[in-house]
């Protein structure tokens, strides 16, 4: 079993959406390299609860295996921390060393208001999907699954984009707080499949408009979003979104 080591933490504490927040210092000396980052925070919370002086630190998580998209910390200025293609919950303490100072902040964007401490409200993403991120098919009305063959490479690429877990790291890391990668990924998934084709234009325009309405920033092609995306989704999705948007606009009134 590995030796334990010590880390210094600066963690954002904020009581509620309208309250001011600040970074608070903690020192944890029972860190084990096999712990996940969230387990490290669990251990810290247990200490805080045992001491009883302040409330434990709130942060979001559920699956703890990198798939639900709940976890969302900005660690030392990087959304989901230093490791590529990794969610906060899959980041392990072996990526840090004894004596490190680690700054932990929530995802910051106007469209993601802080609920408490490190927990933010990402329902804007749901509303973007609601605007058109689906194929309108009634339950039970589908033809046989093999009736439409799909080129394997098309299906595979659609899958690559469909792996987005909706975590919001792209927004958190984007200097403009743009939701283009998230929106682009869903569009790139559905728009390239024959099932998604009939609603392609309508979907693209509606989702882009919703993204504006939620108060996300524009995309300046920084590609920082791609760098932090735990699923490595390429910003080609964003370019594709623009292409479809232009086509839809030029196509005029037809839906």
């Amino acid at each position: 079993m590995a030796d334990t080591f010590t880390v210094h933490l600066k963690i954002w504490r904020q009581d509620g959406p309208d309250q001011p927040g600040k970074l608070v210092d903690y020192t944890l000396d029972k860190v084990n390299e096999h712990m996940s980052f969230l387990e490290m925070l669990d251990v810290l919370n247990e200490e805080i609860v045992a001491e009883g002086k302040e409330e434990p630190i709130e942060f979001d998580y559920d699956c703890r295996e990198g798939i639900c998209g709940s976890c969302n910390l900005v660690i030392n200025g990087q959304a989901h921390g230093p490791k590529d293609m990794t969610c906060t919950c899959q980041l392990h303490m072996r990526n840090f060393s004894d004596g490190d100072t680690i700054v932990i902040e929530p995802f910051r964007a106007k469209a993601f208001p802080v609920i408490k401490d490190l927990v933010v409200d990402r329902s804007a993403f749901d509303r973007i999907i609601e605007a058109g991120g689906y194929v309108s098919v009634k339950t039970g009305s589908a033809p046989d699954a093999n009736s439409i063959p799909i080129d394997k490479t098309v299906a595979d690429t659609a899958f690559d984009y469909a792996t987005c877990i909706g975590c919001g790291a792209c927004v958190a890391a984007c200097p403009n707080s743009s939701a283009s990668l998230f929106t682009g990924a869903k569009l790139a998934h559905l728009n390239r499949l024959p099932q998604g084709e009939p609603e392609r234009k309508k979907r693209t325009v509606a989702m882009v408009e919703q993204m504006d309405e939620e108060g996300f920033g524009d995309c300046s092609n920084y590609a920082e979003c791609e760098a932090v995306c735990p699923k490595g989704i390429s910003i080609s999705a964003i370019a594709e979104m623009r292409r479809n948007y232009v086509k839809a606009t030029l196509a005029g009134t037809e839906a």
Binding site: K10, W12, L23, V74, N76, G77, Q78, A79, P82, D84, V103, E105, R108, A109, K110, A111, A173, P175, N176, S177, S178, G215, F216, G217, D218, S220, N221, Y222, A223, E224, E226, A227, V228, S234, I235
Partner: peptide, 29 residues
Amino acid sequence: IWWNRRQARPEGYEKYQSKGGPSHMSWAS
């Protein structure tokens, strides 16, 4: 675009760092 960006993140990060890799964050950008 620059103005929107300020609206879109009223409270900035205490610490912000690019993750490199595919990122095109540079002094230029």
